[in-house]
Design a protein around this nucleic acid. Structure first.
Lengths: 299, 299
DNA sequence: CTTTCTCCATATGTCATAGATATGGCATGG
DNA sequence: CCATGCCATATCTATGACATATGGAGAAAG
């Protein structure tokens, strides 16, 4: 049995007339009769009484009609579902964020915009280190991520830059350089311990901070490693050292720390949206597009 | 799109492998590839990622699978519905009864048996005059009826006799013949008014009663007509006359009336199940069969 | 790095069958 | 009684579903 038989059957059931039903279906009457006869033979039950003035449903035909009437609509609905999913308007989207990326206002903006543009998409947001996120995307556990891009990121991923922001210095409130509000000369920190997350957590910020110090002409002394970005601020507040962080972390109001911008050449760090180059979920590219738009409008 | 495409799609989606899916479907791999390609072209969306080790569902494919997975089962269910209805195991059955037929114990027995044998059939029982019932059956408003058959019943109906029962006389308790318990000689009633329903309500009992009197050698005097069978007893109790009724009406305990059987040759009246000769609903023939069985077992 | 295996796509031929056309039978109605 | 409307049968055509043969590409194995 094929959908064709159902469509033909329903047409005859509605018209109560083979000839008119055939016309409506755009075929001749004999093939329609033949198809209905085949259908009846297959299910072993007569569906129509052929009477002089047309065709009447039998009891079996009525039951059959009730059972199959919704089927053509379900076929059509399935097609629409597939098309919408193909355009990336439905489904699930797993978004990954790193600790510092989540603090950049572009990120909540982008997620909010996406949620409005694709209300039928189920969002799943998780925070993890850059390396975890990149791995998850490569292996398909995650669709897209916003993070700090690094040279070492896998080549099979597409990274689209969203923004660049300056690094700023974080000092304990009691630090001698904490009172000055002017841009700070990095070499002033040459004697302080530099608190960073381990390079295994995120290469980008780690490398950017080290590179900034070296560009300023000194090799920093590394202090205690911080397990996560947010805990850098706690360690600084505890006067265990100083650190360099993206400017957007200024919005974290941690007691006992002071942020100071850095005198030119100001080191900068990027923010990028990342997804698979091959077979990207349509949702992922849609999300990336919206994130780019949000970033552009903010610039 | 045809059901075939759905079956093929679901097989590939499950096997994640065109070759195995084709084997399971009993066709070759190239035609399967071709059918899937046609399906994708029709809905304009790629459903599978063709990768080295097989085929993976795209987002669209996953949505499509969720939407179409139940369809093959629904086709099968529709076939079963039609087959059951074709065997007369489901649907509605309209049963008509005349006033006197309803009193014969065969009738409730038959309805009860049918309800047990076909629990999925929705029963609709109505009581009306023979002529109304016969008309309703001819015109399709009713499927089957149990009534007192008459020669004048439409030939396009099939009547299957269920039983015959004797007529008995109904007398007012004060009637001179009411005391005797032996079978009564009909001519004893030649001076009493005979109370009957109008011939337009039911020819059978009307004619049978008149015929019995004439066979007994007298022309009865007709009393006031009774609108329904049951009201005959009330009119007799009111001493407006006597009547002849089927023996099964004895179970009506109306105060002030006495039943007496009739001396041979005892007039008899039939009980029959009636349904259309042409295009009888399967349920109607099933009901008639059960009614015949019940009647046979009671004999 | 080459070989081999696996799997899907392409190419081509065949056959089943959906459908067209022509016609006949059977009711109903003027 | 003939005209009309409707469905069934008969026959032909052509689309397309499927089989067979082959190619190409990636992964696994040597």
């Amino acid at each position: 049995m094929e959908l064709r038989h159902i469509r033909y059957f329903l047409a005859v059931a509605e018209e109560r007339n083979f000839t008119r039903a055939a016309a409506r279906l755009g075929i001749g009457q004999p093939p329609l009769s033949s198809q209905i006869r085949d259908l009846e033979a297959e299910i072993g039950v007569q569906l129509f009484h052929r009477v002089a003035h047309g065709a009447e449903l039998t009891e079996a035909g009525q039951g059959f009609r009730d059972a199959v009437a919704p089927l053509p609509g379900q076929f059509a609905a399935a097609i629409r579902v597939a098309q919408r999913a193909g355009r990336g308007e439905t489904g699930q989207l797993g978004i990954g964020l790193t600790g510092t990326a989540a603090l950049n206002p572009i990120v909540p903006d982008a997620i909010r915009s996406f949620g409005r543009a694709y209300p039928d998409v189920e969002l799943r947001v998780e925070e993890a280190s850059s390396l975890t996120l990149l791995n998850n995307i490569v292996e398909g556990r995650l669709d897209v991520a916003i993070l700090r891009p690094a040279e070492s990121d896998p080549v099979e991923l597409r990274e689209e830059s969203l923004a660049e922001e300056p690094l700023v210095v974080v000092l304990p409130a009691a630090h001698p350089a904490a009172q000055d509000r002017r841009p700070l000369d990095l070499p002033l920190l040459r004697d302080d311990a530099l608190i960073l997350t381990p390079r295994s957590v995120g290469t980008s910020l780690h490398d950017a901070a080290l590179a900034a110090c070296r560009a300023a002409g000194f090799e920093p002394r590394l202090g205690q490693p911080a397990p996560q970005i947010a805990s850098i601020l706690s360690l600084v507040a505890a006067e265990l050292g100083v650190s360099l962080v993206p400017a957007s972390m200024r919005q974290l109001n941690v007691h006992g720390v002071v942020f100071r911008s850095i005198r030119a050449p100001t080191p900068r760090i990027g923010l990028a949206v990342v997804y698979r180059k091959t077979l990207p979920p349509p949702l992922a590219t849609n999300f990336a597009r919206i994130a780019r738009n949000v970033a552009r409008d903010r610039r």
